[in-house]
Structures are given as structure tokens and as C-alpha cells.
Design a protein around this nucleic acid. Structure first.
Lengths: 187, 187
DNA sequence: TTTGAATTGTTGTTTATACAACACTTTGAA
DNA sequence: TTCAAAGTGTTGTATAAACAACAATTCAAA
């Protein structure tokens, strides 16, 4: 137990910064967002930002894993089961997110983003598989989740690098029968 | 000049408290809102509340004059001139606001609210009169604003104490020809 | 009416944050 | 290219705010 109850100011300031970043992200490209922008929006001093985050990429990473995909996660788990429609929704969410990110390459943060997205996808898939498969053993489900997360993420990269003019929805559709077959087989 | 630039923390905290109070006001009656409720919503310590405000009535007073009616003020000045429709909108806003307040009588704060509402009304009326009367001298316009603010506020009290089953809109309509006559006379 | 829980308002101490100033880097226009 | 403006990241000091503890009051339920 390391939880010696963090100071309320720390919690509040982190939240203010993250919320401001999310707000700004919906208005600007990531590459156009400065630390000053964020701290102004959050009404905190710029020096305070560096007390909590190494830099703006560190913030991005934390927002990514703690906020954006966690939210997706919750929404998703409540309303959907892992069927054709679910794959399409997920794939659209990922491609949307990638579109909103800058294409500027700096400090290898794209690798970081990729890793986080895959990790979060894996969690989502595992939870959903667990919900609809009482019989199959957990190790098998975990493995399926890993494969699905890499597979779907890979597909989104394929979509991004080659032909973005095709709608994500249409892009992923051909793969769905294959994806579903594996899952149905486990039932 | 006393403006030696206030600490950003002070501005932020005041805003957090006021915003939280407004948020809570839309969910609960005033009399059911505790200081703890506000500070929890605002993510600040309860002691900090008392650093900025004497008590919850002091907060109410400040929110009233700094936020609620100021907003009405701005919206109003941009979109309307002082005609029949404007009187109806204003009157509805006041009666709505009074309905939303608690009827609990404590520390004579109703008098305070009344005063603030009248003051704000006076400001609104004066600005609008100024906008549409280039000729009339300012002292006369100020006096008109005073009379209008007391008159309209009095009408809202009349509405509140006697027959709330009549719509505010219908209640004020009979008085409008008289109100407008005085204004048109000044043009 | 009595009791216990919740709310109010206050105080001393600790700590997170504001502020100002700094050197360094990036960027965009002359 | 050169220069000014904007952005980054850091530090020492001052201060607002957190925390914990307290007595006093209010309020609902036994």
C-alpha cells in the first residue's frame, strides 16, 4: 500500500490540466497546443505544469491511458457485446483518434501512443470476452485479446498509411467474418 | 488604485466555488445546499471556502451580482432593445429566479437579494435607455432607470405573493403600455 | 425530550502552487 | 542568414490552500 492519500490540490490540479488538454484537443491539432495554452485554460501557473508532468508528451501519454481510452472502455462495456457492430465502433474510434493526433514525429512518442492504444484495446477485448465466455479458460481468452488488439491496431495503421479515402467502416468490414469466426468458435 | 494583481490561485478558487454553486443550484434548492456540497463539487477544502466568503449567504450575494445577473445583462444588451418583448423577457427572468430561490427566511438575506436584483435591473435599464436615447439628458435617463427597476421588481413581488398561478407573461402585460409610454415620450 | 450525526465556523501547521527571473531552443519573418 | 518573438524547462521565495482538530450549533429520529 503506497496510498498515503494524496493532497486534494494535486488531484485537482492534475484534473484541471487533463481536462484543459482534452478541451484544447477538440479545438486544435496536438502539434499546435503549447504548455502555455494548457496552463492558461486550466488557470494554473506554467511552472506547476512541470511539477506534475515531464513535458507535453508525458501529459499526452497519461491522458491517453487515464482518460480517453478508459472512457471508451466504460461506455463500451456497458452497452455492447463483441459482435460485428462492436468491431466497427471500436475501429472507428481508433481511426478517429489517430486522425486527431498530429503527424509530427518527435521523441518517438508515436511508439508510446501505439503501445498505450494496444494495451487499452487488450483490456477492453479481454473484459468483453470474459463477459460472454463462461466456459473457455482464461488463458485462452487473454491470448485471444492480445491477438485481437494487435490485429485491430495493425488494421488501423494499414488504413492510416495507405488509403484514408476509404471509410474506416468499409475498410474493416471484410475482416469481420474472420474475426467473429474465432470468437464464435470459443463459445 | 488597489489593483496589485490578485494571485491566480485566488481567482481560480473563487471561480471554482461560484461555478460549483451555480451547478448545484440547478440541481437542488438553495436551502438544501451545504458548504460541504459546494467544496466537494469544487474540489477545495472547506476551510478555504471561509477564506473567501463569510458564509453561504455571502456567496449567494456575490454570485448574484457577479455572475447570474451580469450574464443576463450581457445577453440582453446584445440582442434586444427596450420594447414590449424585452420587458416580458426580463420579467420572466426575474420571476423564474425568485421561484428557484428558497423561501426559507434567514439572516434577512431576502432583503439583500432584493437590493441586488434592483441594482442590476437599474444598470440594465440605464444602459438600454442610453443606447436608444441620444437626445435626452443622462440624469433623466438615470431617474427613469431607477423607477423602472423598482417598478418591475415590485411587480415581480406582487406576482410572487399573490397569484403565482397566472403566467408571469400574462401578469406583466397589462402594465406594458404604461411602461412603454414613458419611454417613447423621451425619444 | 434526548441523543447522535451532520453542519458550521475557526485556528495552527504543513505543503502545493504562484510568481519572477533565468538561460536555452525553436520559429517565422525581414 | 539574422534577428526578434514565442516557447521550453528550471529555480528560490512568498503565499494560498490543505489538513486536522476543535467547539458550537442545527436537526432528525428514537
Amino acid at each position: 500500500m503506497t496510498s498515503s492519500k494524496t493532497d486534494l490540490r494535486v488531484i485537482r490540479t492534475r484534473k484541471l490540466i487533463m481536462d484543459s488538454f482534452i478541451t484544447l484537443s477538440s479545438k486544435k491539432e496536438f502539434k499546435d497546443i503549447t504548455v502555455k495554452d494548457i496552463t492558461t485554460e486550466a488557470m494554473i501557473n506554467r511552472a506547476t505544469f512541470y511539477y506534475h508532468f515531464e513535458d507535453i508528451y508525458d501529459l499526452l501519454e497519461k491522458v491517453l491511458s487515464e482518460v480517453l481510452l478508459i472512457n471508451l472502455n466504460d461506455d463500451f462495456l456497458q452497452h455492447n457485446e463483441l459482435n460485428e457492430g462492436a468491431f466497427i465502433i471500436l475501429f472507428k474510434a481508433i481511426t478517429n483518434f489517430q486522425k486527431s493526433l498530429s503527424n509530427r514525429c518527435h521523441r518517438g512518442y508515436e511508439e508510446t501512443i501505439a503501445r498505450i492504444i494496444r494495451e487499452q484495446l487488450e483490456i477492453i477485448f479481454y473484459k468483453m470476452l470474459l463477459k460472454q465466455n463462461v466456459t473457455t479458460e482464461n488463458e485462452a481468452l487473454k491470448m485471444t485479446a492480445v491477438i485481437l488488439s494487435w490485429g485491430i491496431y495493425g488494421a488501423s495503421i494499414e488504413w492510416r498509411t495507405s488509403n484514408q479515402e476509404i471509410q474506416p467502416e468499409e475498410f474493416i468490414k471484410p475482416a469481420i467474418p474472420y474475426l467473429m469466426a474465432g470468437i464464435d468458435g470459443q463459445k
